[in-house]
């Protein structure tokens, strides 16, 4: 399963912007992960200490999980970390692979655009709904989600253009950061 993709495809100003965006999104995801760890640990610890119990630890941890998932949803498109059926990639005719991969990414762009519309609707309408414990307006919770799906859409569009210009990406698990399913 040798990689045929040329290294130089990941250069140029567009990729620099993408890589900065990637760094920012992964940092947000990392903060969210560590927040989940700390909050859940606190929930366990406060039972054994005399501190007053915080009811919001569970709720905030749940929000962190949402923010984590949406902040790196786009990164996974760029890093090809989303789980997909890669049967088509094994076709000998690389033109077919290129066309199919492009169509797939265009579909992701379309789904991403739909998600942006949905997220926008939630940010603008869910202000009257408050979270059960913190009474945080739910529209705030959806703001990072909106940013995440917008990034997803842009990244999928860039990836689609990249496949059209540079040919198909082929699986290389060494590069993949996803290590579980």
């Amino acid at each position: 399963m040798s990689s045929t993709q040329p290294r130089q495809r990941r250069q140029g100003p567009l990729w620099r912007i993408v890589s900065i965006l990637t760094a920012v999104e992964i940092v947000i995801g990392a903060i969210a992960l560590l927040a989940i760890f700390v909050l859940v640990f606190m929930q366990a610890a406060q039972r054994y200490t005399s501190f007053e119990s915080f009811a919001w630890t569970g709720e905030l941890a749940k929000f962190a999980m949402i923010w984590l998932s949406f902040s790196v949803m786009g990164v996974l498109v760029t890093s090809r970390g989303h789980i997909a059926l890669e049967i088509v990639d094994s076709f000998k005719n690389k033109m077919i692979v290129r066309v199919v991969q492009t169509i797939a990414l265009v579909i992701v762009v379309a789904v991403g655009a739909g998600l942006v519309a949905e997220a926008w609707a939630l940010v603008t309408t869910q202000g009257i709904i408050k979270s059960p414990v913190l009474r945080l307006p739910m529209s705030f919770v959806y703001i990072p989600v909106l940013i995440g799906v917008a990034s997803l859409t842009i990244r999928a569009a860039i990836a689609a253009i990249d496949v059209v210009i540079n040919g198909p990406h082929l699986a290389d698990y060494e590069e993949s950061e996803v290590t579980a399913a």
Binding site: S53, A55, W56, E59, P132, V133, R135
Partner: peptide, 26 residues
């Protein structure tokens, strides 16, 4: 006694009103 109350504000206020030490469990 560590008593489990649901996490929403009214329930937690009830815990205080009753003099209970509320703790969170799903």
């Amino acid at each position: 006694l560590r008593i489990r109350f649901p996490g929403s504000p009214q329930f937690l206020m009830n815990a205080k009103a009753l003099g209970a030490q509320a703790t969170e469990v799903a």
